[in-house]
Write a protein that binds this DNA or RNA. Structure first.
Lengths: 264, 264
DNA sequence: AACTAAGTTTCACATAATGAAACCTTGTTG
DNA sequence: CAACAAGGTTTCATTATGTGAAACTTAGTT
C-alpha cells in the first residue's frame, strides 16, 4: 500500500516536490526524502522529461510541471462535480451576491473544486485545486458529518487541529460533537474558525443513497452579516444541493450524440 | 526518449485515458493502446490506487483523478505566469471591459493559463487548463511568431490545419507568411479563424532576451467591434505585457518565510 | 446449457530499477 | 591558487520489478 512499485515511488517524489510550494533544489528534496541520492535523482529526471516537473536550469530548481495543468483540466471536467454544478452555482451566486464555494473531500482534506466571487466570475485554478483543512471549514465539517463512521474516524485521525483563530475546534471530541449537531441540523457553519472575520454556511450535497458527493458554502464577513443572516440562505442552498445531486445521478457523458463543436 | 522506463509508460497510459475526454472502459483503452492486456491492466490499477485515475465501479470506467487537480494547483502557482500576471490582467480586463486570456505554449499547443470574463460574458470554449490549436488562435500565432526558427518548424510540423471557419489558415505557407507579418507588427489578430464571430488581438510577452514567456489577448465579437477597434488596445496591451515580463524576471519565491497551511 | 466478450490472475522470464561508490564541477577558504 | 567542500552526476554489479502469454473467472448473451 505504501508503494505501487516504481510508479508509486515516482509519484511520491512528485508530491514531495509539490509540497514545498515553491521551486526546490535537488538537495532540499533529498533532505526530506527517504530515497538514496541516485534514485531520487533519476526520478526527478524522469518526471522532468515527462513534463510532470519543470526544471529551471538557472536556479537549478524543480517545480510541478505544466503537463499537470493539462491533465487536471480533464480531471476537473470528468471527475468532479464542477461541470454539473456550474449552472446551479452561477444561479446561487447571483441570488445571494456572496462568495460561493464548491468542495469535495479528498482523503482527509477539503479540495476546492470551484468558486464564484460575486464580482469576478470563473477563475479556475486560482482557487480550484486548493486544499484546506477539514476540521475548521464549513464544507469540511459538513462533508465529514455525513460520511460513514469508518471514514470519519480515519479522517479525524489525520487532522492536525492547528488553532487558526480563537474559535477553531482543536480536538477530536469537540469536532465529533459538532459533527453530531450538523447531522441533526442538516447543515453547518464556519464561525470564524479558520480566518477571523470570515463566516460561512455550508450544505452537504448528498446522493439518494445518502452518500456525500460534495458540499456547497456561502461565505461572508462578520462586518456584513452574521450567522442568523447566513441561515436565511438555507432554503436556496438546500434546493441547489438537491439539484446538483439530482443532476449528478442522472448524468452520463454525451455517449455518442456528441456536439463537441468547440474544437480543440 | 519514447519511454522513461516504467514511469513513462504509466504516464502514457494516463494521457491516453485523459485524451478520451470522457470516462472509458478498460477495453476501450486497450483498443487504443500498444500495451498488452495485463500490462495495461496493472497500470490502470496502479494509477487508480494513486488517485491519478478515478474508477467508477458501477460503470466500470476510468477517468482522470482528483489528485491531478491538487497537483495542478501547485503547478499553476509555481510554473506558470498566472500568479505574476494576475494583477496586471485584472487591471487590463477592467480597463478594456472585454474577455482577456493569458496563454503559454506547451509543445505544439496553446495552453490557456488564466482568463477574465467581460462584464457581458460571451460563452466561449476557453478555460484555464484547456488547450487549443496554435495555428488559428491569436495567442498561438503570436507566441509562435516570436519563437526561434527551430521551434517554429517543430510546431508547424505538428499542426493539423483543420479548417474551423472560412478564414482559418489551412497550410504551413500561409501560416509562415502570417508569422512574418506578426513579427514585423509586434502583435497579431484572430480574424474569426477559430470561431465565427469571435475576433481577438494578441500580444506576446517577451523577456529582455527576447524569449517568449507567453501571450495575452483581448477577445470580442464582430457584433461589438472590429479589428480596428481592437487595435486601439495595442498601447495598454503592450504596457501590460511589458509589466508582466518585468515582474517575471524579477520574481523569486518568498525564500524563507514559510507559512504553510494558511490555505483558504 | 452453451457460448462469448470483458475483465482478472498466474508465473517463468527478461528487463529495468537500485544504490554504494566513484566521479565531476563549481564555489569557497586558508 | 592549491586544497577543500558541497552539490550534483555517472557507473555498474546486484536484485527486485515489471512483463505478457496463457489460463481462468465472471457477467452477459442467445
Amino acid at each position: 500500500m505504501t508503494s505501487d512499485g516504481t510508479v508509486g515511488k515516482a509519484l511520491e517524489v512528485l508530491d514531495q516536490v509539490a509540497a514545498f510550494g515553491r521551486p526546490v533544489r535537488f538537495s532540499e528534496v533529498l533532505a526530506r526524502s527517504d530515497f538514496p541520492k541516485p534514485t531520487l535523482y533519476r526520478f526527478l529526471q524522469t518526471l522532468t522529461n515527462q513534463d510532470m516537473l519543470a526544471y529551471d536550469p538557472d536556479r537549478q530548481t524543480y517545480s510541478p510541471g505544466i503537463r499537470l495543468v493539462r491533465l487536471a483540466h480533464a480531471a476537473w471536467e470528468q471527475s468532479t462535480l464542477a461541470p454539473i454544478a456550474r449552472p446551479h452555482i452561477d444561479a446561487l451566486s447571483a441570488a445571494v451576491g456572496e462568495t460561493v464555494h464548491l468542495a469535495q473531500l479528498d482523503h482527509a482534506q477539503v479540495l476546492y473544486i470551484d468558486k464564484r466571487n460575486a464580482n469576478n466570475p470563473v477563475q479556475m485554478f486560482s482557487q480550484a485545486g486548493k486544499v484546506g483543512p477539514a476540521y475548521c471549514t464549513g464544507v469540511g465539517k459538513v462533508m465529514l458529518a455525513f460520511s460513514d463512521p469508518a471514514r470519519i474516524d480515519a479522517v479525524i485521525d489525520q487532522q492536525s487541529f492547528h488553532r487558526f483563530t480563537p474559535t477553531t475546534l482543536t480536538d477530536a471530541r469537540t469536532l465529533r460533537d459538532e459533527l453530531t449537531a450538523i447531522r441533526a441540523n442538516g447543515y453547518g457553519f464556519d464561525r470564524e474558525e479558520h480566518e477571523p472575520g470570515i463566516i460561512c454556511i455550508a450544505m452537504p450535497i448528498l446522493s439518494d443513497a445518502g452518500r456525500v458527493l460534495g458540499a456547497l458554502s456561502v461565505t461572508s464577513t462578520t462586518g456584513r452579516t452574521n450567522l442568523a443572516g447566513l441561515e436565511s440562505y438555507v432554503p436556496i442552498l438546500s434546493d441547489t444541493a438537491a439539484a446538483i445531486a439530482r443532476d449528478a445521478q442522472n448524468w452520463s457523458f454525451p455517449d455518442h450524440d456528441t456536439k463537441e463543436a468547440t474544437g480543440r
